[in-house]
Amino acid sequence: MTIEKARFNMIEQQIRPWNVLDKDVLDMLIVVKRENYFPEDQKTLAFFDTELPLPDGSKAMNPKVEARIVQELSLKKSESALLIGAASGYLAALLAHMTRHVTVLETSPVLKELAEKNLHADGVRNVALLQADGISGQHTGNYDVIVVAGVLELIPESLLKQLNVGGRLLAVVGQLPMMHAQLVTRTASGFTERSVFDTVLPPLAGVEPASTFKF
């Protein structure tokens, strides 16, 4: 099977059936080559419905979860994004394709270096990677979009404070056996929240929430 056939099957057999139907998102999955973010022995596996192992012992998300996250955020080219957790750099590349700039915070020096290498090799220039704990409040900024690439028990208040008005945060919250992807939007008067899909992700490695926000 060719790489392009594997990509086609991934989109048609995994991603569309998971309610990812936005044409811009589907077109992006063809343009941003997922195999470029994995080593040679994993390139064909990059299109499977599985979480691939990463060099630090953690795992990358499966493709349908990444695509669904991007779709739910309704990204705009004028927006700035914050991603907590670099993994292989692929989710950062997806966000970068649809926004103005992406800041990535990663606690693992191994993953920071891997993601930087992959993004540079793929020609992605609007991503900045920092070795920092994105949950504790060690790094702060102002963003239109925030994505947490790992499960949390609760959403930290330190992250919500960094959302611009109209900004959206997506994080998977909960514990086994049930975890929910929560989409939080900041309004002029506060925050709104809705559950957008159920999934299971590993905990976000190397971070400890400093404080949490309850709706």
Rank of each mutant, 00 (worst) to 15 (best):
M1T: 06
T2E: 15
I3S: 08
E4I: 07
K5N: 03
N9I: 12
E12Y: 01
R16G: 00
P17Y: 07
N19T: 11
V20W: 05
K23T: 15
D24P: 01
V25A: 00
L26R: 02
D27A: 12
V31T: 13
E35N: 12
E35D: 15
E35Q: 11
F38Q: 04
A46F: 02
F48A: 10
D49Q: 03
P53F: 08
P55Y: 05
K59I: 02
A60G: 13
P63G: 14
A67V: 07
I69N: 00
E72M: 06
L73V: 08
L73E: 06
L73S: 01
S78M: 00
L82A: 04
G85E: 04
L91N: 06
A93D: 05
A93P: 00
L95R: 09
V102I: 09
T103L: 03
V104N: 05
T107C: 03
T107R: 10
L111S: 07
K112V: 05
K117H: 11
L119F: 15
H120G: 02
A121F: 07
A121K: 15
D122P: 01
N126E: 09
G141W: 04
N142S: 12
N142P: 04
I146Y: 03
V151I: 11
V151M: 11
E157F: 11
L159K: 06
L160V: 10
Q162W: 09
V165C: 04
G167H: 02
L169I: 10
V172D: 02
G174M: 13
G174W: 12
Q175R: 13
Q175D: 08
M179T: 15
A181N: 13
L183D: 00
L183C: 09
R194M: 14
R194V: 08
F197N: 10
D198G: 06
P203K: 11
G206D: 11
E208G: 06
P209T: 14
A210E: 11
S211A: 07
F215A: 02
